[in-house]
Design a protein around this nucleic acid. Structure first.
Length: 536
RNA sequence: GCGCCCGUAGCUCAGGGGAUAGAGCAAGAGACUUCUAAUCUCGAGGCCGCAGGUUCGAAUCCUGCCGGGCGCACCA
């Protein structure tokens, strides 16, 4: 596990801390990285550490000898039932009943906050995502952006950061002009212009507008954008993705922010004139080529607005600006970072997350390919829960193929049902316990035998580390994997053990485990925006 | 040509320095008098793309190659 902040309630971190104190006892201060992990092989204990091997060069002693000395110290800890030196110098730890009961009590006490980090002062993270131009409905690619960006936001929030979610939309320039012309053409029954937008949604937008046929193009454009933005917003909301801020590119121009940003970069000495255009010397800071800010015709480029927008993000108080972009935009990373430095900002505070492209049943989607799959179609076809689950099931670094035939299938092949069903089962047991008056308060003093109960509690105790690591790595798919493993452990537990046992002590521990599992599934699924139903 | 991502079981993938590399699906064999069998159990399946290097230890880190995807605008 990684060593995370100890302000989180975390039974495993407590173990880590105990081990650290033992190491300090040996070295007198120096502490190497202490790896503490759950071995795959049960013979290697509940947890194992390789710290003795890392300590060997430091103390100039054989690893097994160091492991033996550590074992003697650690053996006395109440959380530890037994210690064993194994292999080249591993320390295999077996946890005591005490630890299992304590861990379960701790997670039930923390409830939905188990694993949540206390607010970190001075960290204001701005996550800008989706940001698709309002010239059409959101495609499957934007759906991945929405799901991924939203999950990253939830993860960072859970990790104690103050998160603001922002949608930036382009409502100026050529593409938007074409959009406005397309809307008007659709309404008047004329041919859409060359390079215009042929999508069916343009017709719907056109028909929603209350404009006379001879209204100026600007009106068609402005009102068309407003309607399109609302379509996008409500679609995202149905997908449980909401934003704190909607920022228009137009306002950056009209407020003078774009001009101000160019002036600022100029005063920092990074602007130059060439071929009648105004350029930003981004190559000074690692970009492939310099970028134009003002074209020869005097128009600003999209990048000029980007520059103003970066400036705005930090002026509003963000300490970190995260961008979520598709792989086809990876070339923007250096450009954005270099742009920030040209404004006197810190490149490290600009973080660009790239997700790989999405295909549907093996085919790449494109607005000009005529085979577009829209976000709304996806959620209607397979439901919001399944859509969100599948969209973040794989690493964002990995290409994603959504097999619509498979995704539509509502069988046990579908992992989201498997996980949700585990939660429904938990609730079912808890309902029955309540109905029959079999509820018991607390974890109880019972001995916890080796078996599914211990396996399940160990899994549950991983949560704070899983959540913190997923946030650090911006990797919501780790939450998905974990939740699936938890469901599997629970199904096995449920199959092997009768929870509403006649012995009150046994019942107390098992009921507590079921409660903790139900909460963990709700919490974990919540971080990926998937519901945990009480009945199925 | 340059840059980013990927290459692990038949398929889709997990695995961010540790012991015998994991999961789902597919294919095979079993388990329902039960708090939901929408479940569980067991077996089979692998030059971790190739070659070097770092390390006590590499699927993991470094370098080079091979293969696939995506980019490289005074477009947005």
């Amino acid at each position: 596990m990684l060593c995370h902040d100890s302000r989180v309630i975390d039974p495993v971190a407590d173990l880590h801390a105990a081990l650290t104190s033992a190491v300090v006892g040996l070295t007198g201060g120096d502490v190497p990285q202490i790896g503490l992990e759950r071995p795959g092989n049960p013979e290697h204990g509940d947890y194992a550490t390789s710290v003795a091997m890392r300590l060997a060069p430091l103390l100039d002693k054989p690893p097994r000898e160091i492991a033996q000395e550590l074992a003697t110290i650690v053996e006395g800890f109440p959380a530890i039932a037994s210690v064993e030196v194994a292999g080249p110098g591993f320390l295999n730890l077996r946890l005591s009943d005490d630890w299992y009961r304590g861990a379960l009590t701790a997670m039930l006490t923390a409830g939905s906050d188990f694993g949540r980090h206390a607010p970190v002062a001075g960290v204001e993270t701005l996550v800008e995502f989706v940001s698709a131009n309002p010239t059409g409905d959101l495609t499957i690619g934007s759906a991945r952006n929405a799901a991924y960006g939203d999950c990253v936001s939830r993860l960072l929030d859970f990790a104690g950061q103050t998160v603001t979610r922002e949608y930036y939309f382009n409502d100026a320039g050529n593409q938007i002009n074409l959009f406005g012309q397309s809307v008007r053409a659709r309404r008047l029954g004329e041919e859409i212009p060359e390079g215009g937008y042929p999508g069916a949604e343009i017709v719907e937008v056109a028909n929603a507008l209350d404009l006379p046929d001879d209204a100026p193009l600007d009106d068609w454009t402005t009102q068309g954008v407003a309607v399109m933005i609302e379509r996008i917003r409500s679609g995202l909301e149905r997908m449980r993705v909401t934003f704190d801020l909607w920022t228009s590119e137009q306002t950056l121009h009209s407020s003078g922010a774009v001009t101000a940003a160019i002036d600022r970069a100029r005063s920092e000495g990074h602007v130059f004139e060439q071929d009648d255009a105004t350029w930003l010397r981004t190559t000074t800071f690692g970009d492939d080529k310099d970028r134009v800010l003002l074209k020869a015709d005097g128009e600003t480029t999209y990048f000029a607005a980007d520059l103003a927008y970066i400036d705005l993000k930090f002026k509003r108080g963000a300490t970190r600006a995260i961008y979520v972009l598709g792989a086809d935009h990876h070339g923007y990373i250096q450009r954005l970072k270099a742009g920030a430095v040209c404004l006197g900002l810190d490149a490290e505070a600009v973080e660009v997350l790239i997700y790989q492209l999405v295909t549907v049943s093996g085919e790449r989607m494109g607005k000009r390919r005529g085979n577009v799959i829209i976000l709304d179609e996806l959620t209607e076809a397979i439901g919001v829960d399944a859509a969100r689950y599948f969209l973040v099931e794989r690493s964002h670094d990995q290409m994603l193929d959504i097999d619509l035939d498979l995704a539509v299938e509502t069988s046990s092949k579908n992992p989201v049902f498997y996980v949700q069903y585990a939660h429904a089962r938990c609730q079912s047991i808890l309902r029955k316990a309540a109905e029959e008056g079999l509820e018991v308060a607390g974890v109880g003093p019972t001995h916890v035998p080796e078996g599914p109960e211990r396996t399940l509690v160990r899994r549950l105790a991983e949560w704070p580390d899983i959540a913190a690591t997923a946030a650090d790595l911006r990797a919501p798919h780790r939450i998905v994997s974990w939740v699936h493993e938890l469901a599997a452990d629970f199904h096995a537990f449920h199959h092997d053990l009768h929870v509403l046992h006649e012995d009150a002590g046994t019942r107390a521990f098992r009921l507590s485990t079921v409660r903790a599992t139900g909460e963990a599934l709700t919490r974990g699924l919540g971080l990926i925006g998937v519901n945990a139903p009480d009945r199925m």
